[in-house]
Simulated assay, not measured.
Amino acid sequence: MRHGAGREPVIGGVDPERDWRVPVAWAVDEAALRGVPLGLAVAVPPARDTQHVDDTPRLLGQARERGDVLDRAAAWARERQPGTRVSTRLLTGAPAHAMAELSEEAGLVVLGSRHLTGPGALLGTSALVMPLAARARCPVAVVGHPGHTTQEPAYLVVGVDDSDSSRAALGWAFAEAALRGCALRVLAAWQPPVFATGRGHGERFQEERRLLAEVVAGWSEDHPEVPVSHEIVAGPPVEVLAEAAEHALGLVVGRRGRGGYTGMRLGSVARGALRRAHCPVIVVPTP
């Protein structure tokens, strides 16, 4: 699994049912920053299970329509970043499965469709986000909130705990901050045990701070050019991270934290961040 800014292409998923410009802009700008090609893709869902009706005309029409959208998106991306090579792929089959296979050869997958509450979370192409974030072989960036504004000086936020997934997210965040020339804010959410004494709270809090400082120091040695801050903030993890990343370039989280159950592919913090945060959210899998 490749989590750094290597030579693998950036893959952008084009949503034919909504405005694709924000995620395509993010994808082609990221490809230009990395000096790698951009592949734009859209999937044509499989035929419906019909016993007496030939579904071929509908599928052909849908393929033509989605191909046209894909071509327009590619032309727009080439105009935005003339020096970046842009290719297109019209995929067939279930969108989540097709994009997960495509992620095998990518350094990053970029999606839009941040409509993750209400009917849009279950119907239409926005249903691609959660399954792909859970299954992709590379980091998945989900962008597209039209009201998001960034703050200067620019910074990324990464959420950490003591999980392997969190460590992968931290490494990716440092590499991305170095690539973008921005600062990095490392956050751990603190939720004191219910039955611990006041003294116990303080001792455990100090231990958590020490461990966080040690982890960050190791990555800072590898990326001395990245301005970094780290802190532990009291509160629920999703709310802590979403508030801290309100005006960030992006929020980086691991696919699974230390909570949840073993079979869960996408942890509760990653799910919550995808629903709650207004900035781009990058979900990093465990190597």
Rank of each mutant, 00 (worst) to 15 (best):
C182W: 03
C182F: 03
C182I: 06
L184M: 12
R185Y: 02
R185N: 12
V186H: 09
L187R: 13
A188C: 06
A189Y: 00
A189I: 03
Q191A: 15
P192V: 07
P192E: 14
V194P: 05
V194W: 09
V194H: 13
A196G: 12
A196W: 05
G198A: 14
R199P: 05
R199K: 14
R199F: 09
R199L: 14
H201Q: 13
H201F: 07
G202H: 07
E203D: 14
E203Q: 15
E203M: 14
Q206F: 03
E207R: 14
E208G: 10
E208I: 05
R209S: 12
R209V: 06
R210T: 13
A213Q: 13
A213I: 01
E214P: 08
E214V: 05
V216Y: 02
V216I: 04
A217G: 10
W219R: 11
W219G: 08
S220I: 00
S220A: 11
E221R: 15
D222W: 02
D222S: 13
V226Y: 05
V226F: 10
P227Y: 03
V228N: 06
S229V: 02
H230C: 09
I232K: 07
I232A: 14
A234Y: 01
A234T: 10
P236M: 11
P236W: 01
V238W: 01
E239M: 09
E239L: 12
V240D: 06
V240N: 08
L241M: 11
L241G: 05
L241D: 04
A242S: 13
E243N: 08
E243C: 05
E243S: 10
A244C: 05
A245L: 02
A245Q: 02
E246H: 10
L249W: 05
L249C: 14
L251I: 04
L251F: 04
V253C: 08
G254L: 01
R255H: 09
G259R: 15
Y261W: 14
Y261P: 08
M264I: 12
L266C: 12
L266E: 07
G267Y: 00
G267N: 05
S268D: 12
S268R: 13
S268L: 11
V269K: 09
A270W: 00
